[in-house]
Design a binder for these strands. Structure first.
Lengths: 112, 112
DNA sequence: ATAATTATCTTTACTTTGTAGAATAAATTA
DNA sequence: TAATTTATTCTACAAAGTAAAGATAATTAT
């Protein structure tokens, strides 16, 4: 198990956004977190495409919100990160940390 | 200035590999670092494609090695990360850190 | 009940990145 | 000059990023 492909750049952020929203992760809120935390303004369609792909890969799973919503609008689709998704996230972080490790030292600032 | 697109997943690793190699970054060594540090085994062709694109975007620059090499084989093409490249790298790191920030707390391990 | 309104999710299409494999190139040595 | 060595370039296609328009499904107004 664990064909261990790599997480795409954006996929990584989406997974993190879902994690930090825990029970409240669905299209709109995920998009909002992305905007609030890293000022990334993606279209809702772009986001869903990625959500769909992440789910196909088994990195997240979804459930439909309660049929009885006390407001207009379609039911929400809530997402959570699966164990495999968390693993992928950790692996990615580990790799990135490893690559940054000795670099920081020699990496003398960036002339603004 | 600073159209600030995002660094692709692999692009990021390549930039870091070049930085840590400083004066010695060219095709083969970059590939080797990627393999040694994060066990990523990409074809040399794949790597060059990315190097070419990074250079087109101005995130790295290159110079041809000394014409007089004391060994068989074509001249090396050395790469260095430009200021813009470093900036992109820092921005990416900053975003990633921001997204991970509060997550770590709620992110209770991964059941192996 | 039927038409607006509202809040979401889906589809479609296209651009950018990631990747490998085969082809070239340029220097050294037999 | 024909091998050999070390390296880069080309070609092609799959995967991921992204937007814009379209479709759904509730609720509320008429």
């Amino acid at each position: 198990m664990g064909k261990s492909r790599f997480l795409g750049e954006f996929e990584q952020y989406v997974l993190l956004a879902i994690l930090r929203l825990s029970e409240q992760a669905y299209g709109t809120t995920i998009r909002q977190v992305l905007f609030d935390v890293i000022q990334r303004d993606v279209s809702i369609g772009a986001l869903y495409t990625t959500l769909t792909r992440l789910e196909e890969k088994g990195l997240i799973s979804s459930r439909l919100g309660e049929a009885t919503a006390e407001r207009g609008g379609r039911a929400k689709k809530y997402f959570v990160v699966t164990g495999e998704g968390k693993r992928a996230l950790n692996d990615t972080r580990r790799s990135l940390d490893a690559m940054w490790r000795d670099v920081k030292l020699s990496f003398v600032g960036v002339s603004k």
